[in-house]
Structure formats: C-alpha cells, structure tokens
Amino acid sequence: MTAPSIHPSAIVDEGAKVGEGSQIWHWVHICSRARIGRNVSLGQNVFVANHVVIGDHCKIQNNVSIYDNVTLEEGVFCGPSMVFTNVYNPRALVSRKNEFRNTLVKKGATLGANCTIVCGTTIGEYAFVGAGAVVTHDVPAYALMVGVPARHIGWMSQYGERLSLPLQGNAQDTCPHTGQQYQLRDGHCQLAQY
C-alpha cells in the first residue's frame, strides 16, 4: 500500500478520501466530501468540489476545476484548463444551487485542453473531445468530437488512435497500434466480440 503524495501547498479538507498512490500537486484544493480513487494525478491549481467522484487512474492536468455533481470513471484524462459547468443557465443575480446537473465522464475518455463540458451531459467510454471543443450534448462511446459546438467527426480506439470508420452504418476497422478490432453497428462503435 502506497500512501498518497500530497504537496505541502495543497489543501485537503478533513473528510476527503484520497486513494493510495495518488499524487496531489501544488496549490490543489480538495473539499471534504470529495472521493478520489487510487493512482490519480491532480496537477497544479486543481479544485475538487464536495460532490465529486474521481475514479482510479485519472489524470487531471493543471488549472481544472471539478465542480459538484461531476463523476469521472476510471482512467479519464482532463487536459489543462478544461472546464466543467454545473448550472446550465447561470446568472450572478439568480441563485441556482438547487439546479446543478449531473455530468458523467465514462471510463477512458479524454477531454482535451481548454474544452468545455456543459453540465448534464454524459461522455461515453473512450470518447475523445478535442482541444477547445464545447460539448453541449451526450457523446457516444469512442466518438471523436471537435469544434464549437462540438460535432462528431470520427471514432477513436481505446489506445487513442483514429479509426477509419464512417459515422453511420456498419463497418469494421483495426487500431493501427494495438491490432484490436472495432465494429460500427447502427452508428455505435465498440470492440469487436468474437
């Protein structure tokens, strides 16, 4: 068992759970009810709110705030300065703390630098959101999303290689790095089952 490594400048409020082997870097603030898994890396200036769950092996780069009602499953990558929201239509003069929407980022997904994930969305397994994209609706598993607002332009393997599958229909392709087979069936991409 390896205790988490917490930099002296970090603030971990009493009651927060940080899993073994996790690395908490400079100027991080973790609130008291946050739950962080094993072997997680939180880069400089990361904020983790109370009602947040971060799964094992996630990597959160510098300057990311993870607000209430965000759940990251295992192996999620959050690029530098990417943004989560928790209210859909914020106003400084209107209190909407009872309107927070749940955001779920599923296993293995990548959220690129400076992208924005609008609250209430689900990002599918191993999806890849490009740098600067603004996600306003649910993202399918393995989807490659780019632009403002984000649009679906392709498919990615678990390894992070672009697949040459069409957006719709039925097809099959192989990850050029791992040799894993992927199937597209009725517009849904998945690992081929044999």
Results as ranks from 00 to 15, higher is better:
79 G>Y: 06
164 S>M: 04
129 V>S: 04
74 E>Q: 13
127 A>L: 10
100 F>M: 15
31 C>M: 14
130 G>V: 11
64 V>L: 05
79 G>C: 04
95 S>I: 12
157 S>G: 03
88 Y>A: 15
162 R>G: 01
33 R>F: 05
20 E>N: 13
115 C>A: 05
85 T>L: 03
118 V>N: 14
61 Q>S: 03
57 H>V: 06
150 A>C: 03
149 P>H: 07
71 T>A: 07
107 K>T: 15
156 M>D: 04
131 A>C: 13
50 N>R: 04
57 H>L: 08
166 P>G: 09
163 L>R: 01
50 N>S: 15
88 Y>V: 11
41 S>L: 10
70 V>A: 10
84 F>Q: 03
143 A>H: 02
49 A>V: 15
135 V>R: 06
164 S>N: 15
93 L>M: 12
154 G>C: 10
44 Q>M: 11
132 G>N: 11
79 G>F: 07
39 N>S: 10
103 T>N: 05
162 R>S: 04
152 H>F: 08
159 Y>Q: 09
167 L>C: 08
22 S>Q: 02
21 G>M: 04
151 R>W: 04
132 G>H: 11
59 K>L: 10
21 G>W: 03
159 Y>P: 00
139 V>W: 05
143 A>Y: 03
134 V>G: 06
110 T>E: 08
152 H>E: 08
38 R>E: 07
117 I>G: 07
153 I>A: 05
89 N>S: 07
71 T>E: 15
68 D>S: 13
70 V>N: 01
107 K>W: 03
81 S>L: 01
31 C>F: 09
69 N>D: 14
149 P>S: 12
92 A>S: 14
91 R>V: 08
142 Y>C: 04
101 R>E: 14
108 G>Q: 01
106 K>A: 06
90 P>L: 09
94 V>F: 02
139 V>H: 06
130 G>L: 10
24 I>C: 02
52 V>P: 07
150 A>M: 03
164 S>V: 08
36 I>E: 02
29 H>C: 12
138 D>G: 08
29 H>N: 13
101 R>Q: 15
48 V>P: 05
112 G>K: 09
31 C>K: 15
148 V>D: 06
136 T>K: 12
82 M>H: 02
59 K>N: 08
62 N>Q: 10
153 I>H: 01
51 H>R: 13
113 A>M: 13
27 W>H: 12
161 E>P: 00
96 R>W: 04
167 L>V: 12
116 T>I: 13
35 R>L: 11
121 T>E: 04
81 S>Y: 02
87 V>P: 03
131 A>K: 08
144 L>V: 12
62 N>W: 03
71 T>F: 08
135 V>A: 14
56 D>A: 06
33 R>G: 06
157 S>E: 01
166 P>V: 07
150 A>L: 05
55 G>N: 00
140 P>I: 06
98 N>L: 09
148 V>N: 15
114 N>D: 10
81 S>D: 08
137 H>G: 11
141 A>P: 01
45 N>P: 01
58 C>A: 04
156 M>Q: 08
138 D>W: 10
24 I>K: 02
58 C>H: 05
64 V>I: 04
91 R>F: 10
149 P>E: 11
48 V>T: 06
102 N>P: 10
103 T>S: 06
28 V>M: 06
73 E>I: 00
99 E>K: 11
129 V>Q: 01
67 Y>Q: 09
22 S>L: 01
101 R>A: 15
36 I>M: 03
71 T>K: 09
39 N>Y: 14
60 I>D: 00
105 V>K: 07
100 F>T: 13
110 T>G: 14
97 K>V: 14
